[in-house]
Amino acid sequence: MSVIIENSGLLTLLQTLDKKENDDNRVYNGALDRLAFQMANQLVGNPIDALTVEMTVQPAVIKFTEPTIVAFSGADFAGEVNGRILNTNRIYLFDRGDTVKFDSQKRGNRLYMGVAGGIETEGTNVLSSGDELIMKREYTEQHKELFNILRTNNTVNWGVDYYALTEVYISDIFHIVKVPGVDPKIYEQLEKNTYSVHNEKNRIMMYLKGGAVDVAETANGHDIEQYGLRGGVFIPEDQPVITLNDFDQPTTASHVGTIPSYHLHKLAQKRPGSQLQFKCIDIEDAHANLYAHHLWITSLFKAIDYKLSKELVKEKL
């Protein structure tokens, strides 16, 4: 019994939370939207770093061959199973034979599917049509009780509203942590202009277009090699390019700053045409924001835990 990828969509990967040592078959460079990844797991009662399915632009068509508890998180895609509309950030129980399809996307770019008890693959983590995911079935007592609760309605009457996540996803403003030695005029130009996503080379880099940035006088000139770190903002000519998780080679493009981790969730959800505005900040401000973000995520996950336990208590009564 397994989860079958009937149609793999545009790019469907079994993904880890953090970067892992790669082998011949699997390239695990970590989820682009780490918040959605963790939330999909949190909702189904998994450890937050359990493997999830990351789907980009056009999600997969997925068939379930046994009762399976699932949550989708991330992009706001219109999902459907047996004529029933599915919402993101909500728990569902799918039955044997149920097939989930997604249509248009209202907002966002990436969707994550968490499966209670965990999933794995024997082959490559780049999923193709016809591939099967193996159910690990590492069920906890909480999972077993969840199965009982969901048997009647297949879902619960609560979830995480998009409203609750606006703080993270809705703004188009992205921080850039400044690099010492870069001409302040470059930051002025980046802040003055509005950019849009021109193209994303899948999980490798995001090309932006907007006002030109003159990097002729940057401290790190064109013959110096730099590591293409996650969220790095580089100016190869006069337009910014942002390096993503799968960028794995040195670059000689001018590195002007780095987008902090707390803004990479919403970056992962930007699609061609999405707007971006930059605010260039110092590392001290970035870390203060990161800590506030960490506290917010902790409280969100505690709230999910509370709702889950309340649901279980209600069932017992």
Binding site: I224, T258, L290
Partner: peptide, 15 residues
């Protein structure tokens, strides 16, 4: 030069 390169990286850079 040694600097904080974003919120999760420290980079040593040399010409």
């Amino acid at each position: 030069m040694l600097f904080a390169n974003g919120d999760c990286y420290i980079t040593y850079s040399t010409d």
